[in-house]
Design a protein around this nucleic acid. Structure first.
Lengths: 138, 138
DNA sequence: AATAAGTTTGCAACCCAGTTGCACAAATTA
DNA sequence: TAATTTGTGCAACTGGGTTGCAAACTTATT
C-alpha cells in the first residue's frame, strides 16, 4: 500500500521526489504551521533554495496553503486532499503572542462579509492574534 | 486656529515636531494606506530611520494603525481621533491585486467570531484580496 | 543664562526572509 | 544513446525592517 504522503502528492499532481516526500512528511507531522526558516532547521543540512522552491510548488499545486500571520515569516500548513483554497473553503488562523505558534482553526470558517459595490474578492486572510489554549492557562 | 494635524497629535499625546507634522500631513492626504518605502519616496531626501521611528511612535500612540496586507510591506493609515484600536473597533482592509493599493474599508467592521474554549483574542487582522472598485470596471 | 537630563534625528551598519541566476544532476522523452 | 525537460545546490543579491551610536535639539533645574 502506498504511503499517504505519496497519495497526497499524486492527487495534487506533484512528482514525488525524495525531497518533496521528506518535506511533506515533516509538514504533515507538525501541530502548527511552520515557516521556511523553521523548516530549514529540521534538517541537519539542507539548501534553503530547494526548500523554498518545494514550498512554492506545494502552494501552487495546493498541497499546502500559506499563512501570513503578521510575523514577517510566511507559514505553511497542509491542505486537505479535497481543498481547492477557494474563499469559501478558507478558515481562520490564530497566532499566539506567547508561544509564537501559528495554528489553523480549521473548524472556524472565515465569515462572509458584504464588500462595497463592484469589489471582487479573490482571497481572504483572517488572523486572530492573542493567547492560545495552552498559554492562556498558566 | 490650530491645524487639525497638531490637534490630532495633541489628542494622542505625541510631541508635534516638524518631522511628525510633515509625516502625519502626508499620511492624512492619502486615499490609501502606504508603507515605509512609499512614504520615503514622498521626500526628496529623508532618512529611513527617522520615518521608521516616526511611524512606530504613531502606531504606539495610536495616531495611525498598521496593516499587514500580505505584500511583505506593512502599510499605515490614520486612525480617527477617538480610535483605541480595540478588536471591536477594527475594520476590514482590502488589497487590490491590480493597482496594488491597500484601502481601509472603514464601514465594514470585522465580524465577531467564536474562538475555541480558552483562546483570548487581542487583535484581529482581516484582509480581503481581489479587485477594487476602479480596477474591476475596465 | 548656564547646566544637566531627556528626547529626537541622522548616519552607518546590520539582520533576516525571501528571491534569482547559473550550473550541475536526475529523470523523462525521442 | 542523445536530446530535452525537470529538479537540486551553491552563491550572491534584494529589500524591508531594525539597532547602535553620536550629534542636535528640547525641556527642566539651578
Amino acid at each position: 500500500m502506498k504511503k499517504s504522503i505519496d497519495k497526497s502528492l499524486e492527487i495534487k499532481k506533484v512528482k514525488p521526489t525524495a525531497m518533496r516526500q521528506l518535506v511533506l512528511d515533516i509538514l504533515s507531522k507538525q501541530d502548527h504551521a511552520i515557516g521556511l526558516p523553521e523548516l530549514e532547521m529540521q534538517f541537519a543540512q539542507a539548501d534553503r533554495t530547494t526548500l523554498y522552491r518545494t514550498l512554492k510548488t506545494f502552494v501552487d499545486k495546493k498541497v499546502i496553503h500559506s499563512i501570513d500571520d503578521g510575523t514577517g515569516t510566511i507559514k505553511y500548513a497542509v491542505c486537505t486532499d479535497t481543498c481547492h483554497c477557494n474563499p469559501s473553503e478558507l478558515h481562520v488562523h490564530f497566532y499566539c503572542i506567547k508561544c509564537g505558534k501559528t495554528t489553523c482553526l480549521t473548524d472556524i470558517p472565515i465569515p462572509d462579509i458584504q464588500l462595497p459595490e463592484n469589489y471582487f474578492a479573490e482571497n481572504i486572510n483572517m488572523v486572530v492574534k492573542g493567547l492560545c489554549d495552552r498559554c492562556n492557562r498558566g
